[in-house]
């Protein structure tokens, strides 16, 4: 089997195995898997409203997936997308509520504030990695919780008057789209999907068509060789984290300016950042793969909401399926081994 075909077949097999395992779990726990999955499908494509909501869910998934994937290409594991997303969310909402500009200035400013906040939050682990060789996985995990507590504090004490959520953002900073809402039967679908797709193209362009991208990837492949070739490993590590964090911050801005229009205190994480790891992994850390994987996971997540209503199956089944898909993709050695065994037998 050719290498390219193998690279595509692993995610596909993993998804199928994941869905199959989900069906088995439903069957064992006394639910009807066919009914469950058909409820899920109608929750994804059922009518215009569901479709609009699915696209809304896909939007932050694309950006979170791009964030994880971009860092991965430089050999960095940004597990802190969740934290960068939260600070991006609150920064975008802050600009959206505090200022008063015409829309052409206000909206881009709010979106960029989200990106900048995410970038800053990712700059910290980037700097520590470059300067002190501290492993970015640990630092980003720690910063996730720091972000959660700090933003909760800011929402209660700074952005509102002891309330548990901020005011709604000004209309001039909103990503809401009357066009999309009318097309999709008043779903919460917003302009963010356009921004997400532009970012995917941006990532592809940087990594594949620019010298900067070449350097970033080179550092990912071999730090010593890159250093020897005269590239600054430290600069590239920080740059990669900053761009990754900007994507994550944008994902937060999408939630703040598009879906919700405010920021509220959180008891726990949104989960989007961690699902972004699944998206990036399944998408092979490439822009187009991330978009496709985000569409799949966004669809699964949104369709899951329909499962308790129509089939009585708890929607957590989809979290199980997603987790299993990650296992299968991560254990691709196992799948490769089976495929090579099978194709050897075929050759005999």
């Amino acid at each position: 089997m050719s290498r390219k075909l193998l690279n595509i077949s692993i995610p596909v097999i993993s998804v199928l195995l994941g869905l199959l395992a989900g069906a088995v779990i439903m069957l064992v726990s006394g639910y009807d898997p066919i009914q469950g999955y058909s409820a899920m499908l109608s929750g994804i494509f059922g009518d215009e409203y569901y479709l609009g909501e699915t696209v809304r869910q896909i939007t932050p998934y694309i950006l979170a997936g791009l964030a994880v994937a971009f860092a991965f290409r430089t050999g960095l594991f940004n597990i802190g997308v969740e934290g960068q997303l939260i600070v991006g969310w609150i920064a975008a909402v802050w600009v959206g509520t505090e200022f008063d500009f015409p829309k052409v200035i206000h909206l881009p400013l709010a979106v960029l504030a989200g990106a900048a906040a995410g970038a800053f939050w990712a700059f910290i682990p980037g700097l520590l990695k470059a300067k002190y060789r501290v492993h970015e996985v640990i630092v980003t995990i720690m910063l996730n919780y720091t972000a959660l507590h700090v933003t909760n504090y800011l929402i209660v004490n700074v952005l509102s008057d002891k309330q548990d959520k901020t005011e709604n953002i000004a209309e001039t900073a909103s990503l809401r789209s009357v066009l999309f809402e009318n097309l999709t039967d008043l779903s919460r679908m917003h302009w963010g999907i356009i921004i997400a797709l532009i970012c995917a193209i941006f990532m592809w362009f940087i990594l594949e068509k620019t010298t900067t991208g070449f350097e970033l990837k080179a550092v990912g492949f071999n730090q010593h060789a890159s250093e020897y070739a005269g590239m600054s490993v430290k600069r590239n590590i920080i740059l990669s984290m900053v761009i990754s964090g900007a994507f994550a911050g944008l994902a937060g801005a999408m939630e703040g300016l598009g879906t919700f229009g405010y920021a509220a205190i959180k008891g726990g994480f949104t989960g989007v950042g961690f699902d972004g790891i699944a998206v990036a992994l399944l998408g092979g850390n490439a822009a187009i793969g991330v978009v496709l994987a985000a569409a799949l996971f966004g669809g699964l997540k949104n369709g899951a909401l329909n499962m308790p209503l129509e089939a009585g199956v708890p929607n957590e089944i989809v979290d199980i399926v997603i987790a299993l898909i990650i296992f299968f993709v991560a254990s691709s050695y196992f799948i490769r081994w089976i495929i090579s065994r099978l194709s050897k037998k075929g050759a005999k």
Binding site: F77, I326, A330
Partner: peptide, 28 residues
């Protein structure tokens, strides 16, 4: 260990799986 998966990725999957599975069973 056996399938040589990235340990961090596998750990993340454990976290997602644990939450999903336990809440699924609580509801069940």
């Amino acid at each position: 260990i056996t399938f040589r998966a990235d340990q961090t990725v596998s750990g993340v999957a454990i976290n997602l799986l644990a939450v999903g599975l336990s809440l699924f069973l609580v509801k069940k």
